[in-house]
Design a protein around this nucleic acid. Structure first.
Lengths: 265, 265
DNA sequence: TAGATCTGTAACCTATTTAATCACAAAAGA
DNA sequence: TCTTTTGTGATTAAATAGGTTACAGATCTA
């Protein structure tokens, strides 16, 4: 996935810098310096609209993080590190911190997790749902039935299906158009394709999954077609596991009936 | 560099989660769920000391980010994603955001940067200073003189020196003990070693650098020996470039005199 | 079934942070 | 010398987030 082109680079940069923990003043000051190269408090204030007297505080913050160098003349001059250096700095720092988080969480986590969670669970967000799906794929022993709208059939999912198929799990894939099927046959050679079970209207469709007849997931897109920037499309899912799980029972009934009696294509 | 062992995993995890943008309640709630696996609001409240009535808000926040799944029963049950999944989620998200930041900053940055910055600049922090040093190394054409306390002679720096030497730049390295010299000779075959110019007492020492006789950097460690957790050691540096730069003039005088008349070892 | 307890939502208060303004002395320039 | 600029500190205002309380509807228990 490549980066979407940005409509307003300065404010995009400011937004990201703030999310990385900088104050609004510091973020705007850094961006101002980035376009100036170097400048005085007055220069910065003019292009960033940060009150001049507060530029100094912002600089302190940036200087402590190594993002800005200072020339102690009068007037003081400030110099922002290069875009590339700044990006790498953040990347390293965040890498370091996720590693700390990982080891801390590993130590916290009890030894035996996932002792058969009962009931029906809900998940929000496409990436989170994809994560669950991939985890279920990884736990599959025998069979996967997966129906999806094509929007959600990313390379990541296709690849995971391929790896699972290589492990000897049989794949039944539904809901995808002919040309996408052709593209997929290479990655998942043994996959069986089947038609959508019902009219899979594009507005509220999502995905349906069943693994080994005992783990299921259903999702729906809320703003499928008319997604806007202020109101983007969002995916919501429910999942459940275990023979007796109500969601499993219902989906198993549907899938089994249809896969046995329907025409596998 | 490997991760230091952690003294208090739960609070370390909470700290990192907060720095990644979660509220204190959400962070503590997630950590509580991580050790419980799953639980109700009451369970969470007891182990996390988050007021029970606010657990629900925290869960909303976590659910929206896909870190927690919800079971809409009564009482509601909450389930935290695995440590591994959580870490990967953050890693991806942060990777994505640094990429956005990078492209935004690239578009902001003027074409010609670094038009010979005049004056003397100060930098704070070991990593930031190392960054400058590495940038100077990369710009070297002819000669590098580098003196450092061994603490600061990391593999990263050694490697960069090696690559620069491979480009045909001659390296003069000072201040390191005999056994470290031996280790380095492999990575930087052509390097010339020399004794410390003066008594390089370990408390306030840092590094000295001169590149091509026109770019210099000097640093000092503030709490070299007696660094504690509450008052960690910190490095501060000044740098300058250009023939006429005062810092350059002074350092060039020292180095030239000593390197010509002193005994290169 | 009645009473007691528990659960989830919402409103509220307070502490902390942070953005924004102002006052002013020292320094630099005219 | 006078004016302008610069940097520091104090102060105010607004927004955020932590913490508390009230309460109605569920759930449990005797």
């Amino acid at each position: 996935m490549t980066i979407d082109s940005i409509e307003d680079p300065p404010s995009t940069a400011v937004e990201q810098l703030e999310r990385f923990g900088l104050s609004a003043y510091a973020a705007r000051t850094f961006v101002a310096l980035a376009r100036l190269g170097s400048g005085t408090a007055r220069d910065v204030s003019q292009v960033s609209e940060v009150p001049r007297t507060r530029v100094y505080d912002a600089i302190d913050e940036l200087h402590d993080q190594g993002l800005v160098d200072i020339q102690h003349s009068s007037p003081k001059r400030f110099w922002a590190i290069s875009s590339e250096t700044a990006s790498r700095t953040f990347e390293h720092e965040l890498q370091r911190r996720t590693e700390i988080l990982r080891t801390a969480l590993d130590e916290i986590e009890p030894a035996q997790r996932r002792a058969e969670q009962r009931g029906v669970w809900t998940v929000n967000g496409e990436t989170a749902i994809t994560n669950r799906v991939l985890e279920f794929f990884a736990s599959a022993d025998d069979e996967i039935v997966y129906m999806t709208v094509e929007d959600l059939l990313t390379d990541e999912v296709i690849e995971a299906l391929g790896e699972t198929a290589d492990r000897g799990v049989s794949i039944h894939l539904g809901g995808v158009s002919q040309d996408v099927q052709d593209r997929i046959q290479d990655t998942i050679p043994g996959a069986t394709m089947f038609e959508s079970l019902w009219v899979w209207s594009d507005t509220a469709a999502g995905r349906l999954m069943m693994v080994d007849g005992e783990k299921t997931l259903v999702s729906a897109l809320v703003n499928g077609a008319e997604a806007t920037r202020s109101d983007p499309r969002s995916e919501t899912a429910v999942w459940g596991e275990g023979d007796t799980n109500s969601l499993v029972v219902v989906l198993k009934a549907i899938f089994t009936w249809r896969l046995d009696t329907g025409e596998p294509k």
